[in-house]
């Protein structure tokens, strides 16, 4: 445990204390941020649920904005695409990805197709989220 010079050297590290302490510092920062958010942005209450109200405009949380926005894009005949097919395919695609991507290389520069696909997918999600938030 006595390796003191483990900053960014090529030395093998051990979980404790080398890695755990870095993790702990990062985690502490996040906890402080969460508590600060809770203090600075106190929770409020909306109005009680009213099924007979038509003036309320529902907006989902930001992380569900992308699928919510997709719902607007498809015509009635293709309604099943945004509601079921696209979410399901995304999930299945993520699940089987390690078995489809047989390329043994790990460096991004040697995995151009995989990086491109994931990049486009990520950008689309961010784009839909941003458009969704702006048009909501």
């Amino acid at each position: 445990m006595g390796n003191k010079d483990n900053k960014m050297t090529d030395k093998q590290m051990v979980f404790y204390p080398d890695f755990l302490f870095r993790e702990a510092i990062a985690a502490l920062i996040v906890v402080i941020v969460v508590i600060a958010m809770a203090l600075l942005m106190p929770m409020k209450m909306g109005d009680p649920a009213d099924p007979s109200d038509s003036s309320f405009k529902p907006v989902p949380e930001w992380y569900l904005m992308a699928p919510f926005y997709l719902l607007k894009l498809f015509p009635p005949s293709l309604e099943i695409m945004p509601t079921v097919i696209i979410p399901l395919l995304t999930f299945i695609f993520l699940l089987i990805m390690p078995f489809v991507d047989k390329n043994p290389e790990v460096h991004p520069k040697k995995r151009k197709l995989a990086m491109l696909l994931m990049g486009v997918g990520t950008l689309l999600v961010i784009l839909f989220t941003v458009i969704g938030v702006l048009t909501a």
């Binding site: 038509s54 405009k57 529902p58 719902l71 607007k72 009635p76 309604e79």
Partner: peptide
């Protein structure tokens, strides 16, 4: 419809947007 911009005419028929019925 405020949610996904569906529109119905005065007879209740769906005329634009995602509503299927």
């Amino acid at each position: 419809c405020p949610c996904h911009t569906g529109v119905y005419d005065a007879t209740g028929k769906n005329i634009s947007g995602p509503p299927p019925k």
